[in-house]
């Protein structure tokens, strides 16, 4: 028989936390550590209304379709709430347009001419920013794409890729936003000026977005903001 068989005093079990205290003590942080919020006007585009950290999204559309504007608008809310953004490979970014679309350009790091080192520059920058907008070259090696997506996952950043041809990014990302049509308003034969643009965005992806959904957006509206178009 063991010498210590006299049972010790039972430990006080942890009392349950009162429900109303639990509700009050729930911090906002727990949700935001997994997601990055976007502009409320664009929430319907993404499956959960926000970016899941560590995921990759491609913005596909020919030049002039508004994919760059959409990328900027998707980053705008995050940058204004203190997240840093990166723009790699956009050779001639229109900084004024970025400001107009609500991006806080003080928290944006540009690498406009990475040339052959674009994948390295993007991988390095994923360490420092929460959202990265990448304009890759025409031919993306499979290995580079896989490495970047893994890097985004590991660093829990959001990778946005602006592509101009359908298969430019060789790996199917979590989400694809395709801009299929764009029509400008406000310009005539010498009169007016470009004021507002209506674009169609097709959302297609894995998990919550496996069925393609088409949506219309004002990108931008007459007031320079972004809004859903009926």
């Amino acid at each position: 028989m063991f010498a210590f068989s006299t049972s010790p005093r039972p430990l006080a079990s942890r009392p349950p936390i009162p429900q109303q205290l639990k509700e009050r003590a729930k911090p906002v942080l727990s949700a935001s550590s997994r997601t990055i919020e976007i502009d409320p006007a664009l929430r319907s585009l993404l499956p959960n209304g926000s970016f899941q950290r560590g995921t990759t999204t491609t913005l596909f559309g020919p030049e002039g379709s508004g994919a760059t504007s959409l990328g900027i608008s998707l980053m705008a809310h995050a940058s204004s709430t203190g997240h840093w953004c990166g723009v790699v490979g956009a050779r001639d970014p229109g900084v004024t347009a970025m400001k107009e679309l609500g991006l806080d350009v003080r928290r944006v790091i540009f690498v406009p001419h990475p040339q052959a080192g674009w994948a390295d520059a993007a991988a390095e920058l994923l360490d420092g920013v929460d959202i990265l907008l990448l304009c890759p070259p025409r031919n993306v090696p499979h290995a580079a794409a896989r490495r970047l997506m893994a890097r985004a996952k590991e660093r829990r950043s959001v990778l946005l890729i602006r592509t101009v041809t359908p298969k430019q990014w060789p790996i199917v990302p979590e989400l694809t936003l395709s801009l299929t049509s764009a029509s400008w308003q406000g310009v005539g034969h010498g009169d007016g000026h470009l004021t507002a643009r209506r674009v169609a965005v097709t959302v297609h992806g894995r998990r919550g977005a496996s069925r393609p959904v088409e949506q219309w957006l004002w990108l931008p509206t007459r007031q320079g903001t972004v809004r859903e178009a009926g």
């Binding site: 504007s69 050779r91 001639d92 229109g94 107009e100 000026h193 320079g224």
Partner: peptide
Amino acid sequence: IPSPSPTVVLS
């Protein structure tokens, strides 16, 4: 030029 501004400004 009134806004919106071009998103690609060629250097």
